[in-house]
Design a protein around this nucleic acid. Structure first.
Length: 356
DNA sequence: AATACGGGGGT
DNA sequence: ACCCCAGTATT
């Protein structure tokens, strides 16, 4: 008897792909890069360039944050040829503020590769897409499924969560990646693209991080997490590393003719190749400012900024001067939106009284 | 297998 | 505050 009960509990009902698709046909989100299930059924194909661009932008980034950037990029560069022909620095300017800037560098490299090595046409298969810069396991599967209906498992953070709850996984989902992937792969239907997007939509709108709206979920019938009575207990959260504090100084040099001195960061590491205001190293303890040039530096308070793996406090100093540093350029204070300034340095310039 | 890598929106 | 987002590359 006990054995029978245990067998039932560990039985993992397959995900009902037909129910997922039926739900998607009624509740698919309307997104600028997406072809609706209705239009897809009529034979309309997604634009691989739009799908790819959106997928790169959406890596670890919310749809709300992506919308404006996607509109700007497709307006400036309507095709992969246009993007490949653009200077990388222009791409970085447009990407500024979206974060994870390696994505922008890989985006440009990928566009160049598609034009140079694939005649400007995105490869069809996930395996070929996987070879391109910035395209990993998830993104290659997503593009191939959405654009070609290749029957591959598309597993992002949403699907991780949906499946972790569906199977009531006891361990952090990172340790169960193969099981999650196999569970999805086993049920991928012919409409592989719609199914992939449906699973992500379910994760975004029904089976959300802090809310499980099981009453309207097409997976409710077989969901073990639901059966436990506390689906929000899944997925089990991973142990989180503490986020240390770092400190530094930022030096804003304002030219009398309405310009401010900026420079380009190095080619590797944090915010690589982006534009910055000169500053000190960032250290574990606060240190006195060592000004790059002599002058009447005025304190302008401090800004706080949180990165993925540390928290930064930057003291902001302002000097009115017409002497530049060694490397860098004067940027018009009214045209700072033309610079590749990450949010951190927009905060710094804002603190110094500039419209960044 | 761990770590580096941004920023913002939701709770 | 804390979580987490249509992850990838590097070590």
């Amino acid at each position: 008897m006990a054995q029978t009960v245990r067998a039932q509990q560990t039985q993992t009902p397959a995900i009902d792909a037909a129910a997922v698709l039926a739900w998607y046909d009624r509740h698919a989100r309307d997104l600028p890069w997406r072809v609706s299930p209705t239009d897809r059924a009529r034979g309309q194909a997604p634009n691989p360039y739009f799908v790819w661009l959106s997928e790169i932008m959406l890596q670890q980034t919310t749809i709300a944050a992506v919308r404006k950037y996607f509109a700007a990029f497709t307006a400036l560069w309507p095709t992969v040829h246009d993007l490949a022909a653009a200077p990388l620095d222009d791409v970085l300017v447009q990407w500024a503020g979206l974060g994870y800037y390696a994505r922008a560098r890989n985006l440009h490299a990928c566009a160049v590769a598609v034009v140079e090595h694939h005649g400007g046409v995105f490869p069809k298969s996930a395996a070929q897409l996987r070879e391109l810069p910035g395209i990993g396991d998830y993104t290659s599967a997503a593009i191939a499924a959405i654009c070609q209906d290749e029957p591959v498992a598309v597993v992002d953070g949403n699907v991780d969560r949906v499946v972790a709850r569906y199977l009531a996984l006891e361990k952090p989902v990172r340790e169960e990646k193969p099981l999650v992937r196999a569970t999805v792969q086993a049920v991928v239907p012919q409409r592989a693209g719609d199914f992939a997007q449906a699973m992500m939509d379910i994760g975004a709108t029904i089976c959300a991080p802090r809310r499980a709206n099981c009453l309207v979920c097409p997976l409710e019938a077989g969901c073990l997490g639901r059966r436990t009575g506390n689906p929000l207990a899944f997925p089990v959260p991973p142990v989180k590393a503490p986020r240390p504090n770092r400190y530094g100084h930022a030096f804003v040099i304002r030219h009398p003719q309405g310009k401010v001195f900026v420079r380009q960061r190095g080619p590797k590491g944090l915010l690589a190749k982006m534009t910055e205001v000169p500053g000190s190293d960032w250290t574990d303890a606060s240190e006195p400012a060592a000004f790059p040039i002599a002058g009447d530096w005025e304190p302008a308070g401090a800004i706080e900024h949180t990165f993925t793996h540390f928290h930064l406090t930057l003291s902001v100093w302002v000097l009115n001067a017409d002497a530049p540093l060694d490397e860098g350029w004067w940027s018009d204070e009214t045209r700072l939106s033309d610079e590749a300034l990450p949010s951190l340095f927009r905060k710094v310039l804002s603190r110094a009284g500039l419209q960044a």
